[in-house]
Design a protein around this nucleic acid. Sequence first.
DNA 1: TGCAAAGCGGAGGTGTCCTCCGTATTGTAT
DNA 2: ATACAATACGGAGGACACCTCCGCTTTGCA
Lengths: 193, 193
Amino acid sequence: MAPTPPPSMRPTRADAARNYDLLVTAARASFAEHGTDTSLEEIARRAGVGIGTLYRRFPSRSALLEAVYVDEIQSVCDRAYDFDRELSPFDALAAWLRSFVDYGLAKKTLAGELLAALGKDSPFFSACKTNVQDAGELLLSKAKASGDIRPELELADVLRLVGGITHTTPQPKPDQAMRMLDIVLCGLRRAAP
Amino acid sequence: MAPTPPPSMRPTRADAARNYDLLVTAARASFAEHGTDTSLEEIARRAGVGIGTLYRRFPSRSALLEAVYVDEIQSVCDRAYDFDRELSPFDALAAWLRSFVDYGLAKKTLAGELLAALGKDSPFFSACKTNVQDAGELLLSKAKASGDIRPELELADVLRLVGGITHTTPQPKPDQAMRMLDIVLCGLRRAAP
DNA sequence: TGCAAAGCGGAGGTGTCCTCCGTATTGTAT
DNA sequence: ATACAATACGGAGGACACCTCCGCTTTGCA
């Protein structure tokens, strides 16, 4: 189910791989049910492994978060290329950011934490980080080139702003989140001459 | 120093009032030093009172937060009226929102929590809540009337968006925060005809 | 000065984080 | 098949935070 982490000299032991999957599965379920601050002990219990095993595999809560959501993030990135192919530059960017907000609404506080992780150094997660940035940069630069948005914008600013929409507490209702996103999208546009 | 909470039938006892002040002072210092998630026991220790005393006065962390920051919020509100007097409608709104961001940067995570409190019901805090909304509504409606910003905007959306700027983790650098605010401000403007 | 009301404070129950290390499992080399 | 490292397991336990409860102290009115 999951890409067993780093291939070591010795192949990963069977029990280790099994427990890894059990943990990620349990974590995904728990995060979905109770948000990203579920007790780690609860997750270990649910997975049927000892707390020590959890901590050996995932030294921090965010390591676990990453393992759970790496593939979801990947799919958000992939969508960027679809939008790029099918829509005009500005619309593609807008659609991609909208999918960001949707994802954040669905996953509660998660999107914010992921955006936060973009700032930290996280080896296992860095591929995703690069992917998000690559995808975003592509859409952003095309939209700049088309003259639809202001050329001095920086990707990091835009991503944080959009990530912040769903990160606020209490979580905005979808219609409010979309109105907030509209404000941001208007703000990206080139000022009238 | 602090507006002793609700005047009861019997006047507040001297020791109670003293401890109230000690707690608020200690909390202000601790929040400033270690952020708003400092241990409450630490605050009680610092104030030199028992943990029970803290909990009797402030049943929740946010009750304490409110007591600490009520007056600061008030001053942010007051500034709105100064801006209204001295600047053009749009500039007044922009300046006020900028002061929001400044405040959030200075107080770290606090601004976000305060915005969050705007959603909850918090009796002791509700006066402040009303004040923020009144001040914001004044500036927003004037800016709408002047034709500088789009008339369909809602105050709550704008406040959340701006509050979200400083709420993201890790905290943005001031120049990044200002760039993010610029995006929002551009987004408020009436679209070019 | 006496005495009830108001207030105090910290022990202690619960829950979480995280570490440490004795024990069990696994895979390979013989 | 067997032995033996290397690897992994798991949970006890220390540290710390939250919050409640209740016996003891302080205050201030009569």
